[in-house]
Write a protein that binds this DNA or RNA. Structure first.
Lengths: 198, 198
DNA sequence: GCGCTCATCTTGCCAGTGTCAAGATTATTT
DNA sequence: AAATAATCTTGACACTGGCAAGATGAGCGC
């Protein structure tokens, strides 16, 4: 906070914040550490101590993203639960809404190979979210259908559909849906999620 | 082909080939133009005339990828059609198989933002594949369900499920499925595709 | 208060990147 | 054979991330 001091105080979180902003502006692919450093008013090598390398920064950013993602999902769940809305539909919509709200962050979390996904913090944060989402599926579908090796078929099918819809919308495919206005678009997404397909 | 000549002859396709190989080895994110040039036995600036910029190369590569993708899908369709296998299941499995066979290329085509997707060649190649896949959905589901704005709900739901499953498998999520051996894995994928979810 | 230790941040450098301009070389056309 | 166009090379540029060495100040025992 205090820019006049030699020691920044909370450089780590400040860098994460600026990096998140930079990413959301220009995309993950053209992120420059030096640019982020300049933005934070700090030298280009100040990263080293906090993140080690560029991968470290992106790992931290992705972990923070999953925390936000989890919060967004649980917020939606808690808000709609009282109103008796369908749990799975609520979660799916929140999942997709998060992707559309933070497109670059979402693609860092799910499409990029730059973060170190074996990092315990990142791995823990992501697993927590996935398990919560799958629990939502079970909250709706009482029946659990086990496939080979005990794979939860229903949960995986729903996860795949929601996630696929999110990424296809995000990457500009599905033009028939994207060309609709906001309310129609939500309606279409709702119907796609409700439709079993296959 | 003739390495002794000053003019390469078919540098464009040679560069595409080497770039594809490099990508499949080291990933899209760390692709280096100079490395590809060295591999092709050519100077680092030989790209310019054929692709303009790095984006041009990746655009061409993605377009080639969609052509391959389309061929893989139609091969599977033609092969299984005679055997009376389910059309949608066949297409879905081929879709996922392609993603697993060419993981880096697939992620360039669907997850990267580096190629210029508004390029007519690339756009045309991708649209052709998507339309063929959606036609497969209709070949199976005679009924077309229109949502708001005339969105084909059934087709989009199936596309989302197949694509989501492909990307989640590719990025190492869905560990319960990935830990299975080959045959069990195919069986699980088949069941997930068959399950409507929702 | 003092002095020590260590985390934090800066400066300066390095090899490597993609792009551009200018020129060399060869194909193609006239 | 000469002129023109396509193709490829060389050399430079600004930029990148990472590393080493040193400057700065916070925290802590005394």
């Amino acid at each position: 906070m205090d820019a006049s001091t030699y020691h920044h105080g909370n450089l780590r979180s400040a860098l994460l914040e600026h990096a998140a902003a930079e990413i959301e502006e220009s995309g993950v692919e053209k992120l420059s550490l030096r640019q982020v450093a300049k933005r934070a008013g700090v030298s280009h090598a100040a990263f080293a101590h906090h993140f080690g390398s560029a991968q470290g920064l992106l790992t931290g950013l992705a972990a923070e993203g999953f925390t936000m993602f989890g919060k967004a999902l649980s917020d939606a769940r808690n808000h709609d639960y009282s109103q008796g809305t369908d749990l799975l539909e609520t979660s799916g919509l929140a999942y997709i809404q998060f992707a559309l709200d933070y497109p670059q962050l979402f693609s860092l979390m799910f499409s990029s190979k730059l973060p170190d996904f074996s990092d315990p913090t990142l791995d823990g944060a992501s697993m927590k979210v996935f398990q919560a989402f799958i629990a939502d599926v079970h909250g709706r579908n009482v029946l659990e259908v086990d496939g080979p090796g005990g794979v939860d078929i229903v949960a995986m099918a729903n996860w795949a559909k929601v996630h696929g819809l999110a990424t296809l919308l995000l990457t500009g495919r599905m033009r028939s849906v994207l060309s609709l206005d906001a309310t129609q678009q939500t309606g279409a997404i709702r119907q796609i999620l409700a439709n079993g397909g296959s």
